[in-house]
Deep mutational scan, measured.
Amino acid sequence: PQECLLLEPGLNEIMANSLDYNERLWAWESWRSEVGKQLRPLYEEYVVLKNEMARANHYEDYGDYWRGDYEVNGVDGYDYSRGQLIEDVEHTFEEIKPLYEHLHAYVRAKLMNAYPSYISPIGCLPAHLLGDMWGRFWTNLYSLTVPFGQKPNIDVTDAMVDQAWDAQRIFKEAEKFFVSVGLPNMTQGFWENSMLTDPGNVQKAVCHPTAWDLGKGDFRILMCTKVTMDDFLTAHHEMGHIQYDMAYAAQPFLLRNGANEGFHEAVGEIMSLSAATPKHLKSIGLLSPDFQEDNETEINFLLKQALTIVGTLPFTYMLEKWRWMVFKGEIPKDQWMKKWWEMKREIVGVVEPVPHDETYCDPASLFHVSNDYSFIRYYTRTLYQFQFQEALCQAAKHEGPLHKCDISNSTEAGQKLFNMLRLGKSEPWTLALENVVGAKNMNVRPLLNYFEPLFTWLKDQNKNSFVGWSTDWSPYADQSIKVRISLKSALGDKAYEWNDNEMYLFRSSVAY
């Protein structure tokens, strides 16, 4: 590609939709070469300064400071330590791993069909083939991996386009969902002041979706909304933040926050679980009234959910574990990228498509890292959202599997949720969690119950496949010279610098 592309739109479109291996590689590498390399010296300084700040406030390091958001002291029976968070994340991840490994094996087999000769049947997945710029969410792999393609499509993007949905309609439908469970409408100022579409040439905007509580009843969302099912669900997520903000607005200023950061992320995700169900999509006209649910549509639905929800958990866990180790000084600065990709291979089963030396800073190419967000919130929120969903479905008197529950129109479920939201940070999160779900610790069981039918199906699908991955295989081993030459021509001086062995191999191949 010759034109100058922004991340959004532009590069993200390539990473969402392109099936051209080399075009995807160009976009993936260009973003890291342009952005990651510029941020490397800044990120090194950032780590030093943030650690100084944390230690001045009596924390061991900046990662310890972040984990302090979960700490509860002096509340008998509800205490929770920063170290306990690490333990809980690690042991819940071990419980999730078998499901993830089977999802990984299934996706690898489907990617082998889409990119023959580029995928190893026992290796890691190349990082640039996973549906977005970071491989964070695998949602866009659904069209390549759908188990029963002859069934009606449960990705309702086409239906939204056919019905001329726009950003306003998407957010109005999200608002209807919250109102149906007894939560309030958005304010008039929300509709007047939010930026729900890309302003285009009028001004440059950071398009990463964010929710804003500017105080004095001024709530806004910034999002360059596209007419897709993914953005339909994202709208519910962002509006969930606003509902939380509005619910605790009466609290004293210092207590106007989520019980912990994971709670804030979980609220909209609960609504997304219901909004994505075929039952709900039928009720708002995005699935045909004669759409029939059966075992095959159930597996299609659960796989689509797993690509988004299960596929991202190792990504989140590994990223934050790397940062915690960096802040603690356990990874020397001259080994940041080496350790990043070692951990990516070992924990996530994902491999870099071309080698990256220590001039890169791949983590900082992600919005949340370069903008100083702690990231473990996206792991804890996933466990909380299924715990909350299970409890709210019980309040809504849902009968049947958890993945079929739609809590819309249940004011009982809405009241149970609101009673927790309005507390803000005035009560320990362990107590707030217990008030809703009857337990005071994160628990992976509801998530595993939700995906149980899919897990059973995946194990059957993978019975003749290798489950797990070898960390030795690299996608650039066989194609390295071709890849390096093409990237050198595209990126010039910003391309990865060849070492002596690679230059010798190149000259030998040319001479041959």
Rank of each mutant, 00 (worst) to 15 (best):
R136G: 07
T139A: 07
T139F: 04
T139Y: 05
T139G: 04
N140E: 08
N140H: 04
N140Q: 03
N153Y: 06
N153H: 09
N153D: 09
T187I: 07
T187P: 00
Q188D: 09
Q188G: 04
G189I: 15
E192Q: 03
E192K: 11
E192A: 08
N193G: 14
N193R: 15
N193M: 11
V206A: 10
H208R: 08
P209H: 10
P209G: 08
P209R: 11
T210H: 09
W212H: 13
W212L: 12
D213C: 10
D213W: 13
D213H: 13
D213R: 12
L214P: 09
L214S: 14
L214W: 13
L214K: 14
G215W: 15
G215K: 00
G217C: 15
G217F: 15
D218G: 14
D218E: 14
D218P: 12
D218C: 15
F219Q: 12
F219L: 12
F219S: 14
R220S: 13
M229P: 11
L233Y: 02
T234S: 08
T234P: 11
T234N: 04
H237F: 09
H237I: 06
H237G: 05
H241Y: 10
H241K: 00
H241L: 04
H241D: 03
D245N: 11
D245I: 00
D245Y: 06
D245F: 04
M246A: 11
M246L: 12
M246C: 10
A249C: 09
A250P: 05
A250Y: 01
A250V: 03
Q251E: 11
Q251M: 11
P252A: 09
F253N: 11
R256F: 04
R256V: 09
R256C: 02
R256W: 13
N257Y: 02
N257R: 02
N257V: 05
N257I: 06
N257L: 04
N257S: 07
E261Y: 07
E261N: 05
E261I: 10
E261M: 01
E261F: 02
H264I: 10
H264Y: 10
E265V: 08
E265H: 04
E265K: 10
E265D: 08
E265P: 06
E265W: 08
E269D: 10
E269W: 09
E269N: 04
S272L: 08
F301T: 04
F301R: 05
K304M: 03
K304D: 09
K304W: 07
K304C: 03
Q305Y: 02
Q305N: 06
T308P: 03
T308Q: 01
I309L: 07
I309S: 06
F367Q: 05
F367R: 07
F367L: 09
H368I: 02
H368T: 06
D372F: 01
D372W: 00
Y373A: 06
Y373R: 02
Y373T: 09
Y373G: 06
S374D: 02
S374Y: 03
S374G: 05
F375Q: 04
F375A: 05
F375C: 05
Y378G: 07
Y378K: 04
